[in-house]
Every structure is written in structure tokens, then in C-alpha cells.
Design a protein around this nucleic acid. Structure first.
Length: 878
RNA sequence: GGGCGCAUAGCUCAGUUGGUUCAGAGCACCUCGUUUACACCGAGGGGGUCGGGGGUUCGAAUCCCUCUGCGCCCACCA
């Protein structure tokens, strides 16, 4: 039974997805309508769908489907990212399994393997997005390594180089010894590590004394080229100008002075290793020190490592400290906690390393990007608090290292023709490069085979920062009609973890290449955590299988559950399967409502009952007010609140009230007028719910009404905000309280709902009688009378200062009634007292706004009236 | 070390400029109910001194100070 239901819901979802595709509803072409554009944050081409994707893409689909219903030309561009480091690492690992070493392959051979891998696993995730119901324009699917996309990237590089914004620099970069590539600062994460602080003795050349230096990295002493002291440190004043001897290698190095050294820390002496530390490099440059690189690219020691040559740095730490101890050079070690940079991808400890890299100047790019977000608000970030993070990063930005020592990516279009530092040209093609090279050398004798292209590839983000532009071919054909129409895009939905990698850089690119922002709004999703608040990870095994969830609960239920969970932009969400159950229950509720309505027999002859007429009129206003609320939530990107508004509207107002109010008696037909109005109301519900639960709503849409003329729900017309009849809403409020009062009495007195009751009202507040027919129906009231006198021998309840009586046969428990009345009276009097206290306070009356005082006076009057009523009733009983 | 943010019912969170509707929602929980769409249901109900302390004000969940406990981002102290 259960599996049957699951299969049928899968079948239905597949059926409608096919239907939408066959009718090309997801596809967008430039036309006269207002465009609404989203570009997908391209997932890794070889990735598989995880919870984060589900959240992120559900949000995008909700936005795009709503825009489509609003009659906008909705365009959601999908695609994948080549993810250079991650993908190359996977390919290298796979080759290794097959016994193939990357270094034994040529670039071309390796790329062949990488493409094979991509074709085998690539795009799986896009198929998974279809299961989720994502209405992307699949005809526009892009991959960041597609020929046109790569061409745009290369063109951009050349353009920036020619503008003088890209330069080549010998810099200290973050080196990942495992991937054997550099990483940008953003790709390095710092982790706390229990390490040791080693106190090492260096001999002074001129005297017999020793000097102690504290370091966390004893293995790098072989690369030491100076000892640094603070010039103001009197303890070491006598060492100025002297020289020290590095243990083991016995190199003689100068003792230099710089106030960079913290007198308080360690021993107040610092060993300087310019090749392996950013600060030491700076010191080295300042004091003209020799640079000795002791590492190979995999962080084993090279020939400068002497007898440690070929050994890994971590092995050497242990061995060298032992040797130092033997030599009597190790004074002591202390436990020390420090932060070590690690590669985000490979988790390898980063080694600072000097090398030739390509950099993009950031200084001018950040200016318009700062202005757009913080000054003009041209681009809005949700949640707003993230602007602080954005500002801080942009104001402290360093030049972007765009080169990676990888093959999987766009190869840097720099061509070398000699060994000199400046012997290169940058051009889009080799032919063009040759021309430039010959111009540059003024020689003309260079041949094409004399040019050697830079081995490095570009950082992945150097292609994805162009994404909103390049997917519309706006780099190669900057004036084409698509880019002019779809760009700037409307909303970007992404995670806060890539605000620097991607979001900020897209903003740079937007202003640099289009002189326009790339998007209007950025919605930052939270991180999906488990219900204990832990990040989902493979190691913990706490990440559910996304596709399994879709199978178990249906895509609609998963989408609704995810959206109910996500409280607001930027908030993490604690994943909990009970929310998916809630989504499924909601789906079931709607199906059952449909089952009820579709089972009604419609009569063309019977009149519409008054109760149905007024109920429908009420629902019309109720819908409008809920709709207005929803729209307001949408405008603030509070999608979860928007869904909750619809949830309550459908479950409580539509199902529990409206359908019950118009429901015909057992085996009775329903009148045509009411039936048609209910169908209309149902359809409106489906429209507003469709962005969240597309399959279910489309299914019912086609069943509920003849669709030979009207099209699919996905392209139907969204409701518009209309005026709300607030009088009818407040009238209903009172009526529902009356009904609730009757139900409470039935419950207290064990009166079955099948048994009718009589109701008499003393209408002190002159309440509207419009809903009397509804009260009768919903309360199973056989007669409703307005009376001026209290009824004896009746059960009573009050709504505001109105009194309601249900006469009872037999005796009423006077004691109980008195008790109930006394309690209500006590509460009312207490309430009155607090109001009167407020009003007696001159400072309140004088200082508070008139409106507030008036409200308090109204409360006082209401309370007095209620007390009057209660007292009257009590007297009648006593 | 610097910056930002959070703390409201058992859980996840709303609460816009201090004052109708300010103590709320959903879920969970409790009671009752085999009413002819639905027990994936219906009707009721309990539950919070709004993290602690102090202050401003006629009035504070809301503004200020302080303490405590979390979270995130940034940072080269060997």
C-alpha cells in the first residue's frame, strides 16, 4: 500500500516533468515581456545532489516559478563548473588506482582522461535537479569549460593583461604540496594544531656564547639566512653586528635588527627563513638576505636538506629535533598551540612557497563593488548583516592569484619565447602571440615552435566570475540581444561560504566588463545541518541521501519540508525528517480536500444556501489578506513565512472552515453556484502553492477542471492583490468564536455533535448577523434567537460582552456556572484595574500619543461592559 | 588578537520605528472524539519572570550599560 502510493507519486511527478518539458514551458526567448533571470550557482560537474543543493535549488525554483506565474519572462540558466582542483584531484586519484602516474602523462593525455571522466559522471547532478522539479531552461545548459565559455575566459585574461591589471609576480603563495599547486588565500583554512615550540641554540661566531631562538619549525633551520633581534632589546645589544652559526649545516648568518621582532615572545630572537615564511620573506627583502628554498614541490627536502634530502617535512621535524638534541643544540621544547593553514580541498598543510604566479590587481575593482552594496544599495544582500563581512573583505583585499599549477582548466594564454623574466607575450591565440613576440623582440625571426605556452591553468573562479555574463555570451559578443535583455539578472541564490570566491568577484566582473551589476539581489542560504546542529559530512555519515528522500517523501513534500525548515535568509537550518513528514501530510491534506470536492454531485436546480454564500464571500477576503501577506513575505525573501501563510490558509481556512461551511448534507448534492466558486477558490490556492509544490498542484489543476482551453498551471495567471473586505473578516472572527464557544460547551457537557442545540443571544455589541446561518450550520444549532433578557436554566458563554445561552433540559449545575462566571469576572476586573491604573497616571495620559490613550479608553469601556454582563448573569443565578 | 552576530514555549523560529492585535507561529505534548475528504484527521488544552543584573522612560522582548553562554568571519606573532 505504502509503496504503491510512493510509486504513484513518483509517476505523477515524472509525468508532469515530461509534460512541462514537452511543452517547452521552461524555455525562455527574448521577447517584450519583463525578464526575470536567475543563473544557477554551477555545481561541480562531477558532483552529486546533496542537502545544500536541494535547499538552494528549491529556493531558486520557487522564485522562478512564481515569476513565471506573474507573467514575467522567466529564465533560469543551469550549468556546471569544471572545479579545477577538486576534479583534477579526483582524476589523479583514479589514475593512481589504475597504476598511472600523472607525471608520466603529457598534458594532452591527462586532459583526455579528465574529459572521459567528465563525460562519464558529468551532468548527473543536473538530472537529479530534474527530479526535484527544477524548471531550468535546459536548452541553455552551460559548462565552464565549453569552448565558448573558455574563449570568454581567455579573452578576459588578455583584456585585463592589456589593461595592465594582470601581472606576473615572484611571490610567496600558498602551496598545496599534495595537489602540487598554489591556492588563493580563500582556499586556505586555518586549523588549530597542537605543536611544539622548539628552543634552539645557535653559536655566536665571534664569541663562545650561544643564543637561543624559539621556533615551531626546526626543519627549516637549514634554510635560515639570518637571526633577527629587536634593536631596542638590551639583552642582545652586545650581539649587534655579530654573526651566528646555523647548527647542522654550520652556515654563518648575520644577526640583523628589526623592530618587527616582539621582545616579549619566545626568547626575543627570531630565525629568518625567507623561503618558507611570509614575514621572513618581507624581512629578507628589507635586509637583502639570501633566499634558500629547502623543499621540493611535494614538501620533501631537497639538496639543501643535506642528509635529510628526500624525506618529508613532518618526518624531518622529528629527526632533526633528535639530532639537535644530540648535538646539545636543543635547549627545550614547549607544547604550543598554533594555527596551521590547510588546503580546503586536500586538507594538506600549506607550505608558503616562492614562485612565479599571475596576479590580478584588485585595488580598482573593489571600488564600484563596495559602492553598489554599501552606498547606493544597487545590489541588496539578504540577510543584510552579511554586508559587514563583505565590506571587511573588500577593504582588506589582496591581489588575486589567478594561476594554478593544474592542467584541468583554461591554460594561461601567455607564451614564452626566451628565458628572461619578460620574455613572454599574452594573446588569445598562438598565431597572434607570434606576431606580438616578433614585434616585441623587433627581430621577426621567431617561429611558432619557438613559443612555449605557460603550463599553468587559471583558477576556476576566474571562469565562474564571468558566469552571469558569459552564459549570455556577453564577453565575446558584448552587444548581443540576449545579454542586453537578460542582464543584469534578478536574484542570485547561494551559500555564504562563497561570498568572496564567487559573489564579490561576479560583482567585480559585472562592473569591469559590463559597467553594470550582475544581479539585483543576493539571497544567502544557510548551511544545512543535522538536527543536533552539526554540519553534514561524509565522515559523520549524517547526511541523508537526497534522492532517497525524494523517493520516500516525493519531491513536493521534500521541497515543502525544506522550505518550512529554512527560517530566513542566512540562517542555518537543522534538518529534521519530521518536517518532510509535515510536507507529506500537507500534500495528503490537499489531496483529500480534492477528493471531497470532486465527489460532490452538483445540482443545477437547488438554491445556494445563505451559509454558503456568506462563507464564500468571507473566503474571498481571507484569501486576499493571506495573499497580500504572502507577497509581503516574498518581497522580503522570507520564503518560509510565505509558505507557512499558504499552509495555514489552505489547512485552516480552506479545509477546516470553508469546506465544512459549504459541505452539503450526507448524500445531498451541492448547488452549482457554490460548487463553481469552490473550484475557483481551489484553483487560486493551487496557483499560490504551485511554486512550492509544483507537481501536486499541476496534477490537481488538470483534474479539477476541463483544461481543453486553459493551459497548464505552470503558465497560468497568478492572482493579483485586491481590496480586502475587513468588515467581513472581523464579522467572521466573532462568528468563529461563537462556534468555538458552542463546541466548548458541547465538550464540557458531553453533548454529541449529532445532537442539535438551541442558541439565544443578548447582542450587547450589536454584532453582525451575517454569519448566523454559518453559526447554525457549524454549531449544529437548530434555532438562533436574539433576546433582550437573560435565559434561565441555560449554559452560557460570552464573546466580548455578548452573551450566549444554550438552554438545557434537566438541571443546570448552578455551582459550576457560578464558578465559571466568578472566574471570568475576576479576570475582567483585574484587567480593568490595570487599564484604569494606566489611565489614572497623568504622565501616561499627557505623554502617550492620543491614539494609544484612545485605545486604552476603548479597552476600559469594553471591560466595563463585560463586567456589567457578568455581574448581571451572576445575580440571575444567585 | 580584531570585527560581526545571536540568546523569546520541549524543538525551530516570528516579533518592523518602545504603546491596539505583545508575549506569538509551526512542530512536539496532553485530553476528548471511529461526525458520511482526510487518524498523514477533527475539536479543545497546557506551556515562556522574552539568558542574568543594572539603567533610561508614564510605559521595555524592543533603547543604553554590564556579565554569562554560543556562533560566524577576518588576522603573518616566530
Amino acid at each position: 500500500m505504502a509503496s504503491e502510493a510512493i510509486n504513484s507519486s513518483q509517476n505523477i511527478e515524472d509525468k508532469w516533468y515530461r509534460y512541462w518539458m514537452e511543452n517547452n514551458y521552461f524555455h525562455s526567448e527574448v521577447d517584450e515581456r519583463e525578464p526575470y533571470t536567475i543563473v544557477i550557482p554551477p555545481p561541480n560537474v562531477t558532483g552529486i545532489l546533496h542537502m545544500g543543493h536541494m535547499l538552494n535549488n528549491t529556493i531558486q525554483d520557487v522564485l522562478i516559478r512564481r515569476a513565471r506565474l506573474q507573467g514575467k519572462n522567466a529564465c533560469w540558466v543551469p550549468g556546471t563548473d569544471h572545479a579545477s582542483i577538486a576534479t583534477e584531484a579526483k582524476v589523479v586519484a583514479k589514475l593512481k588506482e589504475q597504476g598511472i602516474n600523472k607525471n608520466d602523462l603529457t598534458r594532452e593525455e591527462f586532459l583526455k582522461h579528465a574529459w572521459d571522466w567528465t563525460h562519464e559522471y558529468g551532468g548527473v547532478i543536473l538530472e537529479q535537479l530534474k527530479k526535484l522539479g527544477c524548471s531550468c531552461d535546459w536548452e541553455r545548459t552551460k559548462f565552464t569549460l565549453d569552448a565558448e565559455m573558455s574563449e570568454s575566459v581567455i579573452k578576459t585574461f588578455v583584456n585585463l593583461y592589456n589593461k595592465g591589471l594582470i601581472y606576473r609576480g615572484y611571490r610567496m603563495v600558498n602551496w598545496d604540496p599534495e595537489a602540487k599547486t598554489t591556492l588563493s588565500d580563500e582556499e586556505v583554512e586555518y586549523v588549530e594544531q597542537n605543536g611544539k615550540l622548539y628552543y634552539i641554540n645557535y653559536k655566536i661566531e665571534e664569541t663562545n656564547e650561544t643564543l637561543t631562538v624559539a621556533t615551531t619549525r626546526p626543519e627549516t633551520i637549514l634554510g635560515d639566512t639570518a637571526i633577527c633581534i629587536n634593536p631596542n632589546d638590551e639583552r642582545f645589544a652586545h650581539l649587534k653586528g655579530k654573526k651566528a652559526i646555523v647548527p647542522i649545516c654550520n652556515r654563518v648568518i648575520p644577526i640583523i635588527e628589526d623592530d618587527y621582532v616582539d621582545i616579549e615572545f619566545g626568547t626575543g630572537c627570531l630565525k629568518v627563513t625567507p623561503a618558507h615564511d611570509m614575514n621572513d620573506k618581507a624581512l629578507g627583502d628589507k635586509h637583502n638576505l639570501e633566499v634558500i628554498d629547502i623543499f621540493n614541490e611535494d614538501a620533501t627536502l631537497n639538496s639543501f636538506g643535506m642528509h635529510y634530502q628526500g624525506k618529508d617535512r613532518f618526518v624531518v621535524i622529528e629527526e632533526i629535533s633528535a639530532e639537535l638534541e644530540t648535538l646539545g643544540c636543543l635547549q627545550k621544547t614547549e607544547n604550543y598551540i598554533n594555527k596551521v593553514g590547510a588546503s580546503e580541498r586536500t586538507k594538506a598543510v600549506i607550505e608558503p612557497r616562492l614562485s612565479d604566479q599571475w596576479f590580478l590587481k584588485m585595488e580598482d575593482m573593489v571600488k564600484p563593488a563596495l559602492k553598489a552594496v554599501l552606498e547606493t544599495q544597487d545590489i541588496k544582500l539578504y540577510p543584510k548583516k552579511i554586508e559587514n563581512t563583505y565590506r571587511h573583505w573588500l577593504e582588506n583585499i589582496r591581489d588575486w592569484n589567478v594561476s594554478r599549477q593544474l592542467w584541468w582548466g583554461q591554460q594561461i594564454p601567455a607564451y614564452f619565447y626566451g628565458d628572461g623574466k619578460e620574455d613572454f607575450v599574452v594573446a588569445e591565440t598562438k598565431v597572434e602571440a607570434l606576431k606580438l613576440a616578433n614585434e616585441k623582440t623587433k627581430d621577426g625571426g621567431l617561429k611558432i615552435e619557438d613559443l612555449k605556452q605557460d603550463n599553468d591553468a587559471l583558477d576556476t573562479w576566474f571562469s565562474s566570475w564571468l558566469w552571469p555574463i558569459s552564459v549570455f555570451d556577453g564577453i565575446r559578443n558584448p552587444d548581443n540581444k540576449e545579454i542586453n535583455y537578460y542582464y543584469p539578472t534578478n536574484d542570485l541564490v547561494t551559500g555564504p561560504d562563497i561570498i568572496f570566491f564567487w559573489v564579490a568577484r561576479m560583482i567585480f566582473a559585472g562592473y569591469e566588463f559590463r559597467d553594470k551589476k550582475p544581479f539585483n539581489n543576493v539571497y544567502f542560504t544557510g548551511i544545512v545541518r543535522d538536527n543536533e546542529g552539526r554540519k553534514m559530512s561524509k565522515q559523520l555519515g549524517n547526511s541523508p541521501d537526497a534522492l532517497k528522500l525524494i523517493e520516500d517523501y516525493s519531491a513536493d513534500a521534500v521541497r515543502a519540508g525544506m522550505m518550512l525548515l529554512s527560517s530566513g535568509a542566512g540562517n542555518d537550518l537543522l534538518f529534521d525528517e519530521t518536517k518532510l513528514q509535515q510536507g507529506k501530510a500537507f500534500k495528503n491534506k490537499i489531496l483529500n480536500a480534492y477528493k471531497l470536492v470532486s465527489g460532490w454531485e452538483v445540482s443545477e436546480t437547488i438554491e445556494q444556501p445563505e451559509s454558503s454564500r456568506i462563507a464564500l464571500e468571507w473566503y474571498d477576503s481571507k484569501f486576499q489578506s493571506a495573499f497580500a501577506e504572502m507577497e509581503d513575505h516574498f518581497s522580503k525573501y522570507r520564503l518560509s513565512d510565505s509558505l507557512m501563510t499558504i499552509y495555514k490558509l489552505i489547512w485552516d481556512d480552506f479545509c477546516s472552515w470553508l469546506l465544512e461551511m459549504v459541505k452539503p448534507g450526507y448524500q445531498q448534492p451541492i448547488d452549482r453556484k457554490t460548487f463553481d466558486a469552490i473550484i475557483k477558490a481551489f484553483e487560486n490556492n493551487l496557483k499560490v502553492l504551485h511554486p512550492f509544490m509544483p507537481f501536486l498542484t499541476e496534477e490537481i489543476w488538470h483534474q479539477i477542471s476541463d483544461r481543453t482551453k486553459e493551459e497548464a498551471l505552470i503558465v497560468s495567471e497568478y492572482p493579483s492583490v485586491k481590496e480586502i473586505n475587513s468588515e467581513i473578516l472581523s464579522g467572521f472572527e466573532i462568528a468563529s468564536e461563537v462556534i468555538s464557544g458552542i463546541r466548548t460547551i458541547r465538550k464540557e457537557k458531553n453533548i454529541s455533535f449529532k445532537e442539535t442545540v438551541k442558541l439565544s443571544v443578548v447582542n450587547n455589541i450589536d454584532a453582525s448577523t451575517s454569519f448566523d446561518s454559518v453559526i447554525k450550520k457549524m454549531g449544529n444549532v437548530e434555532s438562533l434567537e436574539y433576546v433582550s433578557e437573560k435565559i434561565d436554566g441555560a449554559l452560557t458563554f460570552r464573546v466580548k460582552s455578548n452573551e450566549y445561552f444554550i438552554p438545557m433540559e434537566g438541571t443546570i449545575n448552578i455551582e459550576e456556572e457560578i464558578e465559571k462566571l466568578t472566574e471570568e469576572l475576576k479576570y475582567a476586573e483585574g484587567f480593568l484595574k490595570s487599564i484604569q491604573g494606566k489611565l489614572a497616571n497623568e504622565r501616561f495620559v499627557n505623554n502617550a500619543p492620543e491614539k494609544v490613550v484612545a485605545i486604552e479608553r476603548q479597552k476600559e469601556a469594553d471591560a466595563l461592559a463585560k463586567i456589567e454582563t457578568l455581574k448581571g448573569s451572576l445575580e440571575g443565578l444567585l
